[in-house]
């Protein structure tokens, strides 16, 4: 049933936030520490275990998938209900910071990829890449 999926999702979020509050109390900050991140890790783990046990049917999955597909629309609504006027005074921060981060991150991709290829080679036989793929990609 769809509600099983929604309930699983809800339970993960609540437990994640509870642990987040407990960590917050433990380290003496008033904030919820990483509740959303913990909830995500918990959901990944739960889905993995339930799938192994064969307890996750199609309609339960749909309950989670529905909310996952609402992610971007909800982010749009979030963007539309912020104090942008207040943020505009700091406008250049967004542009300078965003572009700088992208430039540095791109520069680091080959460095890290090479590091892995040298020492921790990952066998990949499910997708072979050749010139034909490039041609296909360009046609799209």
């Amino acid at each position: 049933m769809v509600i099983y999926g929604v309930a699983l999702l809800a339970a993960c979020m609540l437990v994640g936030n509870l642990i987040g509050e407990l960590i917050g109390m433990a380290i003496g900050v008033t904030s919820n520490v990483g509740g959303v991140g913990l909830a995500m890790l918990l959901l990944v783990f739960m889905v993995y275990r339930l799938q192994q046990a064969g307890c996750l049917d199609m309609s339960s999955r749909r309950g989670v998938e529905f909310w996952s597909s609402l992610y971007i629309p909800i982010v749009v609504a979030m963007a539309a209900s912020q104090n942008v006027v207040g943020a505009v005074t700091g406008g250049p921060v967004a542009l300078v910071g965003g572009l700088l981060v992208v430039a540095v991150s791109f520069a680091l991709v080959p460095v890290i990829a090479n590091l892995g290829n040298g020492k921790y080679a990952v066998p990949l036989d499910d997708l072979e890449h050749d010139d034909q793929d490039d041609a296909e990609a360009r046609h799209e």
Partner: peptide, 18 residues
């Protein structure tokens, strides 16, 4: 719709694809 409750709910749901 864009408040923290539904936002966090949808974000957690995206982990389903992992």
């Amino acid at each position: 719709m864009g408040g923290s409750m539904l936002r966090d709910f949808a974000i957690v749901a995206t982990a389903f694809g992992v």
